[in-house]
Structures are given as C-alpha cells and as structure tokens.
Amino acid sequence: MAKMAENANNHPPQFTNAAFDIVALAASAGGLAAITEVLSNLPAEFTAAIAVVQHLDPRHRSLMAEILSRRTIISVKQAEEGNNLTPGIVYIAPPNRHLLVNCDGTLSLSQSELVHFLRPSADLLFESVAASYKDRAIAVVLSGTGSDGAMGVEAIHKMGGTVIAQDEKTAEFAGMPSAAIQTGYVDFILPLNEISHALVTLVMGNA
C-alpha cells in the first residue's frame, strides 16, 4: 500500500490500487451507529484513507476512536495535527476541532470559529477535501440533524468528486442527508447497509 510520489503540481500523493484516495464521512445525531455500520463492513485492505466528522460534545474527551476500533477490522484513530493520510486508516476529528485535509495529503486541526454553530464542521472538511483531492474524493453524508455538509457537498461536486447520501428512510435523523440531497449534487442515495459495498466498488473496483 505504498504511496506514489507527489507530482509537481502540489497534488497529494495518489494511493496504489485506488480509484479514489479519500472518503470523507460526516454525521451528527444517530451518527455513531451509522458510521459503525459503514466502517465495520469495509475490508482491512481498503485502499483509500477515511476522514470522519461526527458532531460531539466539546466538553468531553471522545471515546469514538476506541469504540469504533473494537467494531471494525480497519484501523481507527483520533486525528492529530500533521498526520499523513494513509490507506485503510480512519481519522476521527477530535471534539471542538475542525478537521482539514491539506494539498500535500496531511491533516490539520483548527480551532477557528464555529461554522453554523459547529466545530468540527462537515462543510469545512468537505471543502478542504474537494480542494485537495478534486475528482479523487468521495463525500458521504449520514444520519444527523441540521444541514451541515450541504455546502461542502456542492464543493465536492464542483471539483469532480463523488457524493453519497444515506437515504432518509434508513437515517435515524434525516436532516443532514436530506439537506445534501436537496442540493441536487448527490450522486448516490443509498440505504445504510449498501454504503460500504458502494465505497468498496468505487474505490477498489476499477483499480
């Protein structure tokens, strides 16, 4: 799973055997169960990196990485400043930090202002992923209240990336996926139990 060299245009390194390099997942209320369902059905050899924004209580340390690690065969860790995105590893935004993906394939954490009263923000993650990875990015919007992610979905679409939204019938809270779908920029609207298979097909099927 070695990374290929960066090209001269300051694009992030492309991963071998992958049609997409990064999957950005966003969720809020009801999100832990939805994220667990998606990640637990991905193979250990999944060839893209995964970045996750789940709205969390900023006053408490998050146990999300530990919980997901017990339920998945792929590696899960809380994101740290400067992490290099690596295939088959899930990076969770820490509480009260925006998670951003840089053009060199590294991660940044930011305590910049709240976006729509939220930190971390799915919109900021998606917009940074779109700018860095362009048509090699996938955004996934899962269960949650509110509309976080909808602006970022537009950015992913405009840069040639692919957008998946959980269908409203299988979402515990349909606000976030519904707001994404209403943008008109969602490529696939899928029941929760079909999203992981779609990710494997998209990322690894054409490699």
Rank of each mutant, 00 (worst) to 15 (best):
A155P: 14
A180F: 04
E45Y: 04
F126W: 10
L56P: 02
A48S: 15
G146I: 11
E154C: 15
Q111L: 08
L39T: 01
D123G: 11
L109P: 12
I92K: 03
G160L: 12
I74Y: 02
Q166T: 11
S75C: 03
E168Q: 15
V90A: 03
Q182P: 02
R136Q: 07
V163S: 15
Y91D: 02
E45D: 15
S62R: 10
K158A: 14
G160R: 13
Q111R: 14
A65H: 03
M64Y: 10
S121A: 15
S108E: 11
A79Q: 06
K158L: 14
A49D: 03
S143N: 04
V53L: 12
S108L: 07
T170N: 06
A49M: 02
R136P: 06
L118R: 12
S147M: 12
Q54E: 09
R97P: 00
P120N: 09
I181F: 07
S121T: 01
L142A: 05
V101C: 03
R119F: 10
L39E: 02
Y133D: 02
V153M: 13
H55T: 09
C103N: 14
K77F: 03
N84T: 07
G144W: 05
V140G: 02
E80M: 09
H55V: 09
V140M: 06
A180M: 07
L42M: 06
S108Y: 05
K77R: 13
L124A: 11
V38A: 06
E168S: 07
H60P: 02
A137K: 09
E66K: 07
D135A: 08
A122E: 11
G105Y: 00
R97Y: 15
A155W: 08
N41C: 02
N102C: 13
E168C: 11
P58N: 07
L114T: 04
S128K: 11
Q166F: 06
Y133T: 01
Q54C: 07
A155N: 10
A48Y: 02
H98R: 13
G161N: 03
L39F: 08
A131N: 13
L125Q: 04
V129P: 00
F173L: 12
F173I: 14
L56K: 06
A174V: 12
P94E: 03
D148M: 13
V52T: 04
L107P: 02
T86I: 02
V140R: 04
E45L: 05
L118D: 09
M64E: 07
Y133C: 13
Q78I: 09
E154F: 06
S121I: 00
A171K: 05
P58D: 07
T72L: 11
T72H: 09
R61C: 04
I92C: 12
Q78S: 15
V140K: 01
S62W: 10
A65R: 03
M176I: 13
A79C: 10
R136S: 03
L114W: 06
I74T: 00
R97I: 00
Y91E: 02
T106C: 07
K134L: 14
L118N: 14
L42V: 11
A150Y: 09
A93T: 05
S178A: 15
L68A: 08
A93Q: 08
G175P: 13
M176K: 10
T106P: 01
S108V: 08
T162E: 09
S112F: 11
G88H: 00
L114Y: 12
T145K: 10
M151P: 04
A180K: 09
S62K: 12
L99V: 05
I50D: 00
E172Y: 04
Q78F: 01
T162A: 07
P95Q: 11
L63S: 13
A174C: 12
N102F: 10
